[in-house]
Design a protein around this nucleic acid. Sequence first.
DNA 1: TCTGGGGTCCTAGGACCC
DNA 2: TCTGGGGTCCTAGGACCC
Length: 423
Amino acid sequence: MKRAIALIDANNFYATCERVFDPALWNRPVVVLSNNDGCVVARSAEARKLGIRMAEPYFKVKDLIETHKVAVRSSNYELYGDMSSRIMDVLEEFSPELEVYSIDEAFITIDADDRSNLTEFGKTVRDTVKRHTGITVSVGIAETKTLAKVANHLAKKSEKARFVLDLTESPHQEIALERTPVGEVWGIGRQHAAMLKSYGVNTALDLRNCDDQWIRRKMHITGLRTVHELRGIQCVELGASPNPKRSVIVSRSFGEPVSTLDELRAAISYYITRAGEKLRKRRLVAAALTVFAKTSRFNVDDHDRYSGIATESLVMATDSTLELMQSAQRILPGLYRPGYRYKSAGVILTGLSSMTGTSLRLWDSDKYERERLLMSAIDGLNARHGQDTVRCGLHDNEGKWASRLGLRSPRYTTKWDEIMRVR
DNA sequence: TCTGGGGTCCTAGGACCC
DNA sequence: TCTGGGGTCCTAGGACCC
């Protein structure tokens, strides 16, 4: 049986989520901002046309936004996450093999014996997702993930083809590759794109025709895989779903810069709390913890720039917020340097493995068992009464470091008191 | 004044071992 | 003064992704 891969990717996902719950936004351009209201991370088609670019700092486009009455929202990840899982539920019905690649896209494998039907299949997928969730998706179909990405990219630009493109037939494939700038290929970032262009490799087709040895030398094994994928040779397997996570990261940039160790302690406490919740939700334990704090990367003067990082291996892998917090507070002073204005910080948990009970603890097992009961009680209370109703630690939950989230829409689907009202 | 967050994979280089 | 070879494991940092 011949198989093909389809990439399904939501169009302007965050902006469309906002519109689904606030139909007045359909008549206006919409942008969604990142945490701390820092950058534009999603734009409706109209906002895109105004020249607002992806990842552009908000303050740089504020005037443009006001002039054109663009609707602005802070990120509402609870809402987007919930909409995302609804889309994935629909996709799962179309294929047993589903890889959720990001919040707004997924790969599925499909039976490609009857090639004439692939475009129709794509349209059915798109229509069904639209009907069940209100979200429009694009569908790109090809022999490998990288080619499916190319197909999806072109499908997005073609409302006429109703956002579906099948590239399994080779003449279409050549034309598509020729129209795709090399920097738009999945896996080719800014550095590699610039390098390739300096050698006259400008399109995806040029890249496909490059010499293997040369690619290996210039872009290592990952670059070579990309080139093979463009030739239709599958190198990037469909990930098992859900693929196990290798790290948990919680980091934020601060509302305002902070300078004292105490303020950093409070921020790190908050991040550890979030990280512990993530660990327990995924039923994982961590064997090592990293803490970092940095000044703004936009500081011009070298003397104003600093980035401190420290890692500690934990004697026993843990998911206890208390243990993680003790470790983090222990190593934080080692990376702190007075005299800097810190603009962001975070924690990284690594050495993850699944929770298999506590019987392997050689010592402190009673204490750990008590902490586990405590954690699950706290998680339960917070789930019912709201985040941080009960929390661990000595530190204040607010401060200059807290992020700004001034323009967030209600969490319509996950919070009872923010549910939509129909008058 | 104001510039996101959460991930993955790969490589180089150091520590350490026999 | 001369100064192996092969291997593993760990970490830091780069490049990339959405």
